[in-house]
């Protein structure tokens, strides 16, 4: 093909430019789909979020927490010392979209689960400066005042199931989850029981300290308290995860 033909035909040139610039992306991204060790083997320890945690995650995204907080601990010594074990691909395999990032106005939250009590999380989200005077985080007072809307939880889980998250609808899917995660977890991932599971977890654990209501705070704290807690790192020797890269 003559150069002049391309240069004088903007439609053709556009098409060829797209082909050329996509090569870089394709070469870097596509192999990750079929390389065995992209997602580390953690023996089914990472499960999808429960319905309540999932609603908490949606609130996390809605409030734009990701604009200041990343959920990605990188394999550097200073991050290891401050935040703990570096994040694994396996730990965000059910996140759509993932909450990685490099913009940290606040601290990384990948392993914040269990670090503070529920009460601290509630207090801190409501009025951060009441516990951390030098904090610049905004107050989120409406979380405690707003009842959690869980009417569409089934739809939300179905949408994620469509992207490959193993929430179950059919008996076969449920049985598969029992095999991978055990019965207790498989029950939590059953879309048919979604609403019951959400209500039960919120009532049993009472994350916001107010047993009479299920608020957005319940959901958000449930989500924060599970972050980075699923993999038991004492089970793996220090070099295990280095073999996957």
């Amino acid at each position: 093909m003559r150069h002049e033909q391309i240069e004088t035909n903007s439609g053709l040139m556009l098409l060829l430019i797209l082909v050329v610039i996509s090569i870089g992306g394709l070469v870097e991204i596509v192999p990750l789909f079929y390389i065995n060790e992209t997602v580390e083997d953690v023996k089914g320890e990472v499960r999808p979020y429960t319905p309540l945690e999932l609603r908490g995650r949606d609130i996390y995204v809605r409030e734009g927490c990701y604009l200041c907080h990343s959920q990605q601990i990188r394999p550097f010594r200073d991050e290891w010392l401050r935040y703990g074990h570096y994040s694994l691909a396996a730990e965000s395999q059910y996140d759509h979209p993932f909450q990685w990032g490099s913009k940290r106005t606040g601290p990384d939250l990948a392993r914040v689960g269990g670090k503070y009590s529920n009460q601290w999380q509630v207090q801190h989200l409501n009025a951060p400066r009441s516990v951390v005077p030098q904090s610049i985080m905004p107050n989120y007072p409406w979380l405690l005042q707003t009842d959690l809307d869980y009417s569409d939880i089934v739809g939300r889980m179905r949408a994620l199931r469509w992207t490959g998250v193993p929430y179950s609808v059919t008996q076969a899917e449920y049985d598969r989850n029992v095999k991978t995660f055990g019965k207790a977890t498989a029950d939590l991932l059953d879309i048919n029981q979604a609403q019951d599971n959400l209500l039960k977890q919120a009532r049993d654990r009472d994350f916001d300290g107010n047993p009479s209501r299920i608020t957005e705070m319940d959901a958000l704290v449930a989500y924060l308290q599970v972050l980075g807690t699923m993999v038991d790192f004492t089970k793996y020797d220090e070099g295990y995860f280095a073999r996957f890269r």
Partner: peptide
């Protein structure tokens, strides 16, 4: 245990640690 592994950032972290 002493380990000798192909270069990657995770192994590098262990070396630094």
């Amino acid at each position: 245990e002493k380990k000798d592994q192909h270069w990657n950032t995770r192994a590098l972290l262990l070396e630094h640690l």
